[in-house]
Design a protein around this nucleic acid. Structure first.
Lengths: 203, 203
DNA sequence: TCTATAGTTGACTGACTAGTCAAATTGGGC
DNA sequence: GCCCAATTTGACTAGTCAGTCAACTATAGA
């Protein structure tokens, strides 16, 4: 295992950062190579195309992100606390990245997915796959919360998808108006969405 | 008034259609000109840049869209029916466009906004302006519904923004997975979000 | 009919695009 | 020291990009 990052790693990292920070279309292979300090010949030794690099970049990012989600959504944590932690996590992440690069970037999957979905079926498929896996975390938290009588959500799959779309909508809105605070305001509304008020209070 | 569409009109229409259908970055001025049957020299007679054209295209689209929203959100219609109509309208619009161009395209403001927000401040400003106006329609419907005791939403501005982000999240998800049905499932959840169940039933 | 203005045209620039390739270099196993 | 495979390099296509420009035409008003 190399102590210093390999050329391939530097490429996927630079690619994600730049594509997320600007857009897929406006991020050139040349610019990615320059940022990663890799010559273009090497680029095409590792990846067969720009699209191929993007897939690899999303995969690498997902591997990192997944571990964080496993912690946040640990079954040892009460289900509604998992959701609250996830909201906090998204907020903190946005703040951190804004500090780093000066802009609120939202979710790379939605930003990239919305841009390329009509043009690159492979990339779109990868994005869909990761999005589906992310929804799964919400599903299990909602299922557990419902089972414990904390919320009223008999169809946890539908609720999870709706909640996910709300979160992603908020992340996209935050990106568009370059404002993290958009995220803060939605948690109480998310509880309403989940039917937290519909439940018979403890008798 | 010209009976046949002017070059300028053809340009804004082609631009919106192509940018929405693909992406801003992958839509070239040359391609727009070809689609609009206008020579590039003429393009730069009417618009000072591609970005300038995009702003004009959004403006023109908003003028059309606004009239439809005024009908849907007419104060003569009961407030919750306004919202239901708006959901139906979005669904029908997605279906229609899918029939036309073979793909689910979501909302042009979010698709374009998410793509260019870190790169084009003028375009971003125009998008924000239109988005803000759209939220206003939801606000008034929610305010009226609350006043009539149909929902529990004392802070109509916050609720409207949250509902808007849910809708936009759903539209974006529909675009990414090229599936209109995503939209259908969220209306009951939207009612939960608005606190339709929280309200004391008629005594 | 003259003129001013609005609109049109196509050729042009120079920078940038994704992707290719043969040759050179590296570093580990023998 | 030698070999082989993994990697690196930089020069190279051939096409596309946004934007420019001077010359041209159409047309409306006086």
């Amino acid at each position: 295992m190399p102590r210093t990052s390999s050329a391939k790693e530097r490429l996927t990292e630079a690619a994600l950062r730049m594509i997320w920070g600007q857009s897929y279309g406006s991020t050139s292979v040349d610019a990615i190579c320059e940022e990663a300090k890799v010559k273009k010949g090497s680029f095409y030794y590792f990846f067969k195309s720009k699209s191929d690099l993007a897939v690899a970049a999303l995969d690498a990012d997902w591997r990192r992100h997944r571990a964080q989600l496993d912690t946040i959504f640990s079954p040892t944590v009460p289900p509604l606390e998992r959701l609250e932690r996830y909201f906090d996590f998204n907020y903190e992440r946005l703040v951190e990245i804004k500090k780093e690069c000066g802009a609120v970037l939202g979710c790379p999957l939605y930003a990239l997915g919305s841009e390329i979905c009509t043009q690159d079926t492979v990339l779109r498929g990868k994005i869909q796959e990761i999005l589906d896996r992310k929804v799964t975390y919400l599903e299990s938290a909602i299922r557990d919360a419902h089972a414990q009588g904390l919320i009223m959500a008999p169809n946890e799959k539908a609720k999870a998808r709706t909640l996910f779309m709300l979160i992603q909508g908020a992340l996209t809105q935050a990106r568009i108006q370059n404002d993290v605070e958009v995220l803060h305001d939605i948690y109480p509304d998310a509880l309403d969405l989940l039917g937290a008020g519909k439940v018979k209070s403890a008798a």
